[in-house]
Computed example of a mutant assay.
Amino acid sequence: MDIKSLATEMDSIVAQGAIVDAVKQFFAEDSTTSDYNGVATTNKQQMVEKMEGFAGAIAQVNGITHHHTIVDGNVSASEFTFDFNMKDDSKIYWHEIIRRIWNENGEVVQEEYFNAE
């Protein structure tokens, strides 16, 4: 598996705002996630539901910037800035590192988010 190509493809889908599609396409069924706010998921379906809820709460995408991706073996790290206006009139501005561990089938088995600010 060429993890660099897979990570690049996934990042380009995320950068277009199709976050739910990226999860559906690249996550393993038993994947886990955790973020710096303590929110975790324990399988692909939970992550799809979490991302569908999040995407549905966005009123306007002001920008999604993909800065860098690095790959070492089966681990990738991608730096993004997300800027959203939400339907509840709040604003989200995240500058984060997304670390992914990939399995031998080219699927994400673990994704963790780190605040890069």
Rank of each mutant, 00 (worst) to 15 (best):
31 S>K: 07
81 T>Q: 05
30 D>E: 15
18 A>M: 07
109 V>S: 03
56 G>M: 13
37 N>D: 08
6 L>S: 09
15 A>Y: 08
32 T>G: 00
69 T>C: 05
27 F>W: 14
14 V>F: 10
77 A>C: 12
96 E>Q: 09
62 N>S: 01
97 I>V: 15
67 H>T: 02
23 V>I: 15
55 A>L: 05
26 F>L: 08
90 S>R: 10
72 D>M: 06
85 N>H: 05
84 F>Q: 01
2 D>N: 13
63 G>W: 05
30 D>C: 03
98 I>L: 10
66 H>C: 01
34 S>M: 06
102 W>Q: 07
15 A>L: 04
38 G>S: 11
80 F>V: 00
64 I>N: 08
19 I>E: 07
11 D>R: 02
67 H>K: 10
116 A>S: 09
31 S>E: 05
44 K>G: 13
59 A>I: 00
58 I>Q: 05
63 G>N: 11
24 K>M: 12
68 H>P: 00
83 D>V: 07
105 N>C: 04
33 T>E: 08
22 A>G: 02
18 A>Y: 09
86 M>S: 06
7 A>F: 07
67 H>R: 07
71 V>Q: 04
73 G>Y: 09
23 V>G: 05
13 I>W: 04
21 D>A: 14
115 N>T: 03
40 A>F: 11
72 D>Y: 03
102 W>M: 04
71 V>A: 03
69 T>Y: 11
74 N>E: 05
74 N>Q: 14
69 T>R: 10
16 Q>T: 11
30 D>Y: 12
21 D>T: 14
59 A>K: 12
1 M>D: 03
21 D>N: 06
98 I>H: 05
104 E>T: 05
69 T>W: 09
47 M>D: 15
24 K>I: 07
85 N>L: 06
108 V>D: 09
74 N>H: 15
97 I>H: 01
41 T>I: 14
58 I>V: 13
32 T>K: 14
85 N>T: 08
5 S>E: 09
60 Q>L: 07
66 H>Q: 10
102 W>P: 01
64 I>M: 02
25 Q>T: 12
86 M>C: 02
44 K>T: 11
92 I>E: 08
35 D>C: 13
107 E>H: 15
95 H>A: 06
60 Q>P: 00
80 F>E: 01
95 H>G: 07
86 M>L: 13
117 E>P: 04
75 V>S: 03
116 A>I: 00
67 H>M: 06
30 D>S: 10
21 D>F: 08
115 N>W: 02
7 A>T: 10
43 N>L: 05
73 G>S: 02
25 Q>E: 12
65 T>Q: 15
23 V>R: 11
94 W>G: 01
85 N>C: 00
72 D>A: 05
112 E>H: 06
25 Q>P: 00
117 E>Q: 10
51 M>S: 15
116 A>W: 02
80 F>D: 01
69 T>D: 04
79 E>S: 04
7 A>H: 07
36 Y>L: 06
53 G>I: 11
61 V>T: 12
78 S>M: 14
18 A>S: 04
23 V>W: 07
86 M>I: 03
92 I>L: 14
5 S>I: 04
106 G>W: 15
28 A>L: 03
69 T>K: 06
48 V>F: 14
